[in-house]
Amino acid sequence: MLTTFFTLLVLGLLWGGVYLLMAEGLNLIYGVMKVVNLAHGDFIVLGGLLAFSLFSNYAMTPLVAFPLVALLLFVIGLIVQRGMLERITAAGPEGELRTLLATFGLSYVVSNASFLLWGSQFQSIPFLQGSIQIGPIAVPEGLAASSLIAFGVALLVHAWLTATIMGKSVHATAQSGLGAASAGLNIRKIRALAFALGSAMAGGAGALVITLIPFQTSTGGDLTVQAFTLIALGGLGNYLGAWLAAELLGLTEVFTQYYFGSNAASAVIYVVFIGVLVFRPQGLLGKVGRV
C-alpha cells in the first residue's frame, strides 16, 4: 500500500518534468509575444515524429536525436517568426489577435504536413524499456531519463534567462517590450530568439515524450491545450508557477490513472483546465488576469 503510494508519487514527480518541458517553451513564447502559439502541440508532435524517423532510419536513440530535433525546430521557429509572424505590424490587442489567428492557421499547416509525411497511425520509439530498482520502488528507465533531461534543459534555459545578458534581454522584453526597446534592445531579434527557442523546447520535448506515449499527428491539439493549461495554472509567464503546475498535473494524472483507469486520466487534464478557467484564471501564484 505504502509502496504503491510512493511509487506513484515518484512517477508523478518524474512526469512533472516532462510536462514542464512541454509547457516551458510555450511560456517563453507567451512571455515575449503575449500570444499563445496554437501550433505548440503540433510542434511537439513534429519533434516526436522527427525523432521517430531518425530512430527508424538511422538507429539514432532519442538521447542522440534530442539536440538534433531541437535544432531543427529552432530553425523552423525562426523561419515562422522571421518570415511570417513578424510581418504583423499592428500593435496592442489587434496585433495579438492577428498573431493568434495566424498561429491557428499554422497549427493546421504543421499537423497536415506531419500527416502527409508520416501518415495518421500512432508512432512510438521503444527505448530504455527496463526499470531501475530504488529500494522497493521500480522506476521505468525511459521515464527517469526523459524527466532528468527535461528538468536539466528547463533549468538551463531558466538559468540562461536570469543570469546572462541575452537571457535578461528576453526577460526584459517579456516584462515591457516598449521599455526594452527604449533601453536599446533589438526587440525583433529577441522575439525571434524567444520564438525559436520555445519551438526548440517543444521539439525536444516531443523527442522525449514519444518514447513514453505514442503520437499521432492529430495529438497536437490536445498537447496545446495541455501546455496552455499548465502555464495558465502556473500563471501566464510565471516560470516557478509553471513548474509547480507541471508537478501537480503529473501527480494528478498518475494517481488518476492508477485508481480510475486511463480514460479518466486523459479526461483529468480537461477537468483541471476548466477548473483553472473558472476558479483561478490568474494562476496558482499569479496576479489577477482579468480585463
Binding site: 511570417m84 495566424a102 491557428f104 492557421g105
Partner: peptide, 12 residues
Amino acid sequence: IVLGALTMLIAI
C-alpha cells in the same frame, strides 16, 4: 495545409 496557410496569409 492550404486552408491553414491561407488563414495565416490573410491574418498577416
